[in-house]
Nucleic acid binder design. Sequence first.
DNA 1: GCTAATGCACGGAGTTGTGC
DNA 2: GCACAACTCCGTGCATTAGC
Length: 318
Amino acid sequence: MTAPKSALSGIQKVLGKSPYQAHAGCCTWLNGVFWIRILATLPNGNLVIENLHDVGKIAIKKVEWVIEPDLVYPLLRGRDVHRWRAEPSAHIILAQDPKTRRGIPESVMVLKYPKTFSYFKQFEGDPKNPEHGALRGRSGYRKYFNPTDPFYSMYNVGPYTMSKWKVLWPEVGHSVRASVCGPTRGKESKPSLPDHTIIVIPCDTAKEAYYVAGMLNSSPAQIAVRSYIVLHPSPHILEHIHIPRFNPENRLHVHLAEISRQCHLNRGPEEMEEQIDRAAARIWRVNLAELRAIQEALSELSGGNPSGEDPDNPGDED
DNA sequence: GCTAATGCACGGAGTTGTGC
DNA sequence: GCACAACTCCGTGCATTAGC
């Protein structure tokens, strides 16, 4: 760990193992098949979709298809998650049972979701000699699944993936840019699913999610993270940053959750972030002098941008 | 307009944990 | 101690930006 000396005493109060567990998002190994754009909704509810054929390194043919809406979820990519903001930019087809951690059996797919199954079928590849760029040829499928498992099975999909309330941050970057993501509003009330470049903490309630995001985005947590990671703020962060379990009876916790919620509504104006820092500092018992030292050190590390947000991606451009 | 530098996301492989 | 399962971590290469 490297950090300015003046900030060390404050940072030490933040360190420790967290009771929360973080997970990577779902891994497809062939995003160009599973990631889609919805072009239209038909009167019977079915969706006209186009695969995001050009998102990945592996060339995929471009396809327009009609599928059932049941297995389509909003997709959060790394670029969709910012500090205090997470907005899905595409959709993903999840033909997976989070409990068995296998794809939905083909026999069920044929009966219940024949259009979605036929969509996948065109990308299946030769079962005996699966080529690169086919679903059966995916490195992960070959490594983790049997040829008898559904050929559209995915990885890193568990109950946490389907959690209604989540705290997320992108795995790529020099800091944690945390945001809360709840169920989508309106007709399509489905959880947004993170891709595998996003780290997820499942939460029971909205308040708990706002509390955890507030703690992670606070200056004490930010500097602790930045003092030891190089590029990938992965789930291991919670092995080092101690975030006490949310207690709805604890007024400090509830207060922090409320400010964090306001930051999400207002995209984190500076005066609110100062309140976040102070509330988080009280929870960690970091005194005011230590907090000031941390904020100054963070400002130096960020080149005068203590929030840790990318200067070219402030998150309030729209 | 071209080249170099930088940032970041995708895809894959290594590591750790668990059960027998 | 071994085999298998689970999943995190990171290298590579593409896209974007900056400098000339």
